[in-house]
Design a protein around this nucleic acid. Structure first.
Lengths: 341, 341
DNA sequence: GCACCCGGTGAGAGCGCTCTCGCGGCACCG
DNA sequence: CGGTGCCGCGAGAGCGCTCTCACCGGGTGC
């Protein structure tokens, strides 16, 4: 393998096309203000030489990088194995690609890493950051805000209660939860339980709030803690059946939790939905569809959330720097009715 | 929010420390050949001004970027939701971070994207690439090789049969499979079945080869196709029980498949391991540990594979450009004995 | 004591690009 | 037909950094 071949420069292309560097630059960057025959000649020269602009040189003068950092705090391995995050990342990737931006992935591992990430962002290596801050007590968001880099958060940050002007994209967790619980109530169910997610995440907390919006202060024993995993769902469901044998509906904080609950219900001989109706959250496919019975759930368009995050960031980076950017965008959810409720 | 503050340059630091740009540069890059008092003075100036080197300017002259691309072909969403890949990525991230390299994530979506990735890599924006090529017919590897970028593959590429000099990191899929099947045979099982993975992936094909190494051309009905998912495992197990009711052991291509198989065995009233012994592959936690019964499986250190890929790439980028780099590194696997076999 | 060497430092060129500026030519107006 | 404006293009100045090279001073060796 030979050393990297000497790549052609603007100069070389200019020479070949018989024009000046400036003209080549203009053509490469859109070709405005250059007459057609010249454009054509330059294009051909670029083609023949296989010219690719040197991004470093370009960034040096434009101070733009066409790159966006995606910052993921990863206290647990879970975060990554979560299809939820994977889908969001995919949406982000698509949107960035469409705008010729690169995705720089920053995984943080413990406290020390936060400083590293902060330094990197402050270093002006990227034009903006997309940040997934999962926990209420995460110091990362603060660091990032201080770095002065345009940022969009994935999910409502815990410390943002509408007061500060952070930009984020979230699902309507509370509204979706309300709709789910109302649906259960509409089915005539009176003992509607909720298996929560980890409550230090705003999504889980918001879903609980939505449940409470409808159920008021119903029997507090109907609310039991889960952790967004099937195992947690099983545990919670067992506890629930033990202390409230008369439960006739369960709103689970997500589909994984619901799948665990379904398994326990089956094990304990409760029919779904006849004896106990079950609703999940996410509409995670194929999990929800192939559950037994197929799971009624609150759908959120996760990939779209990712896309939107990227679009918001890229948009904010553009011309209008003014306060046109919305503080938070909350995407609607829809109830998908299958068999379980 | 004000525009990005004017960041201090080398020049500014030099002025403040009362030295030349060159000296500051030397200090910033390790400080060799600069006397202690000066080093100290420069360090202080850097600190006070909050100086951060401009990577673009640096890259322009050094032609290094301290960035590595991670290319993931993503024919299905599965790829990403797969904890396997997530873990590998984590290992990569850790190793890159340790060497102050950035991770540029390139997800490809369909054929058109391949050209884009090829162009990006050929564009010399990164120092190297880590590529996950999952399928035999993937055109991506070829494109990348042609781009002339140092590359390490994750998993043995399908077209590499030891002849070409591609660098890759893989698990000893074949050896691990052999060990698993031998263990089953050692238990006195004579009707040992294998549920395969998708055979267009080398890992799945290699595991099947390992099975055959031990079983020879046993009853071909004992080999049934799966797809690395629990649902596929269920399907395959049903088929297996239907056509070979006397099966007394199953080697599943991975833990997800095994979990599906376990469920069907339970459903059909077969005791594990008494009636049918089951072995998986991956040792994916907590899945394997919490399976019912806890799953005996072939462990591979996935995160370490990621680390190693990064280390290999970074090492190859260093001084020794010569053929010191090994063509392929195959990590050993170990059989983890739990209850299921 | 003189030539030499060598480690530490500064001066300056240049990486490949963008962008401002100015010049020349052409159209349009009076 | 001369003046004015504008459009298309080229010249040239840097962006912030690294790296080579020359320079300077203080040992060493004879």
């Amino acid at each position: 393998m030979t050393e990297t071949a000497p790549r052609p420069t603007l100069e070389a292309v200019a020479a070949r096309a018989g024009v000046s560097r400036a003209t080549v630059s203009r053509v490469v960057n859109g070709g405005d203000g250059v007459r057609e025959p010249l454009v054509e000649r330059v294009r051909r020269a670029v083609e023949e030489l296989g010219y690719v602009p040197n991004q470093a040189a370009r960034s040096l003068v434009t101070r733009r990088h066409d790159a966006v950092a995606v910052v993921v705090a990863e206290p647990e391995t879970r975060v990554f194995a979560d299809p939820f995050f994977a889908l969001q990342l995919r949406g982000i990737s698509k949107e960035l690609t469409a705008h010729d931006n690169q995705l720089v992935l920053l995984l943080t591992e413990g406290r020390d890493d936060h400083a590293r990430v902060g330094r990197y962002l402050a270093g002006g290596h990227v034009d903006g950051a997309l940040v997934f801050s999962l926990h209420l007590d995460d110091p990362l968001p603060g660091l990032i805000q201080r770095a002065g880099v345009p940022t969009v958060f994935g999910g409502r940050p815990g410390w943002s209660d509408g007061t500060t002007d952070v930009v984020y994209v979230d699902s309507d967790n509370r509204g979706g939860a309300r709709e789910a619980v109302r649906h259960l109530a509409g089915l005539g169910r009176t003992r509607v339980a909720h298996i929560t997610g980890p409550l230090d995440q705003t999504s889980a907390a918001d879903r609980l709030d939505g449940y409470r919006d409808v159920m008021g202060d119903a029997d507090p024993r109907l609310v039991v803690g889960g952790d967004f995993t099937p195992a947690g769902g099983e545990r919670a469901m067992r506890e629930l059946l033990d202390r409230c044998p008369d439960v006739d509906a369960v709103f689970a904080a997500n589909d994984l939790t619901a799948s665990g609950a379904l398994r326990v219900l089956r094990e304990r001989g409760r029919r779904v939905p006849e004896d106990v109706a079950v609703i999940g959250f996410d509409d995670m496919l194929p999990l929800a569809e192939q559950a037994d019975p197929p799971l009624t759930t609150v759908r959120q368009d996760i990939e779209e959330m990712g896309r939107l995050m990227a679009r918001l960031l890229l948009g904010g980076l553009g011309p209008g720097d003014a306060g046109a950017a919305p503080a938070g965008v909350v995407l609607p959810t829809t109830l998908v009715r299958r068999t379980s409720a």
